[in-house]
């Protein structure tokens, strides 16, 4: 659906070149809700603008629906853009036009007739829940409503791709959730592939099925959200994950916890069905080690439960090895850890 092949974007200002995007490989399949997360300046805003050629890549190719955007003439590119909707952090609505006319703009550009425009606009406003606001001006709307207008406008030309540039960053958490639900509905009902740029991991957690983590213009990690949340490899990814999933003990616990040779700390991870099995019960029944649960957390991602647990095992080393063998036999992800797991003291 969307494919970036070794894409670079370099800006040159006053003779100083600045690489915003460095060799990004990315593939978004049809029907995906693909999230790109990164801190400010990671290059994610540039990245999403490369997808609809608001920015032309310095090097590399961008494919949408199998077509190389770089091979298009200006006219063909404009036509291709009508197949790619975009919504923005600050909505970018025309303040001088009513909600109806804002949503109608893409159709006016397509030179549709009045009846057709009226029907389509009212249908879209109904879909985003703003039928009663058709005659209002954007300045009379709340942030969430403005973004709904933005979404209706982006959908007007029946695109197959929707790009969301920090679409919820200017909204409060509750409004964010309702906008995300709307995006989910768009994805499900209209089968529109969605690409989302954000710096909030909760956005990824809530609606994305795939995620790419960006840093310094590069994609440092990508995969299914479950994979990336479950096994974040890069420290930046771990930082992002820890903003929505607590994976470490409370700091007071870390301070007071005594460790000695007769005890070890393990971090266990459970996915899906495993999370509901009585593993610890079985462990205690089958071995002589003392099991002390120091931390436990469960999170739902993509309708799958992800459980994290930190336990302390006490006993002689023979017993402990037996206990470990038991856990491994139950296919539990297991990792010996120190006191400071993902040491994010701010969490």
């Amino acid at each position: 659906m969307i494919e970036l092949r070794d894409v670079y974007k370099t800006y040159i200002r006053k003779g100083i070149s600045n690489d915003a995007v460095k060799g990004v490989q990315l593939k978004v399949d049809k029907g995906d809700i693909f999230g790109v997360i990164g801190y400010s300046g990671a290059g994610k805003s540039t990245l999403i603008r490369l997808v609809n050629y608001l920015e032309r890549p310095t090097k590399g190719q961008v494919f949408v629906d199998g077509h190389d955007l770089g091979a298009y003439s200006d006219k063909e590119l404009r036509a291709a853009k009508k197949n790619i909707g975009m919504i923005f952090q600050h909505f970018n609505l025309l303040e001088s036009k009513k909600v109806f006319d804002n949503v109608a703009i893409p159709l006016v550009l397509l030179k549709k007739n009045k009846n057709e425009i009226h029907q389509r606009v009212m249908e879209l406003l109904e879909f985003v829940g703003l039928s009663d606001k058709a005659g209002s001006y954007p300045s009379e709307l709340s942030g969430g409503q403005k973004q709904r207008v933005g979404i209706a406008r982006a959908l007007a030309s029946n695109p197959s791709v929707l790009l969301c540039d920090e679409a919820t960053s200017a909204l409060d958490p509750q409004t964010t959730r309702s906008i995300l639900q709307l995006l989910k509905k768009i994805n499900a009902e209209y089968h529109i592939t969605i690409m989302i740029i954000t710096h909030e991991m909760s956005v990824i957690q809530e609606i994305c099925n795939k995620v790419a983590v960006m840093e310094g213009g590069r994609v440092i990690e990508q995969g299914s959200v479950l994979e990336v949340f479950g096994h974040p490899q890069h420290p930046t990814t771990q930082n992002f994950v820890s903003t929505v999933i607590q994976t470490s003990m409370t700091s007071s616990m870390q301070r007071t916890l005594t460790t000695d040779e007769g005890s070890r700390l393990y971090k266990l991870e459970f996915f899906g069905e495993r999370a509901s099995e009585p593993v610890l019960y079985d462990l205690i029944r089958s071995s002589e080690v003392k099991v002390n649960i120091l931390f436990a957390n469960m999170t739902e991602i993509q309708d799958t439960t992800l459980g994290t647990m930190i336990i302390q095992l006490k006993g002689n080393s023979e017993e402990m090895d037996k206990a470990l063998a038991f856990l491994k036999s139950r296919e539990i992800d297991l990792e010996e850890v120190g006191k400071h797991v993902y040491n994010n003291s701010d969490q």
Binding site: N92, L109, S157
Partner: peptide
């Protein structure tokens, strides 16, 4: 941002 929106819609 308005100009960017216009461009993203493929306006001439």
């Amino acid at each position: 941002g308005i100009m960017e929106a216009a461009e993203s819609m493929g306006a001439t």
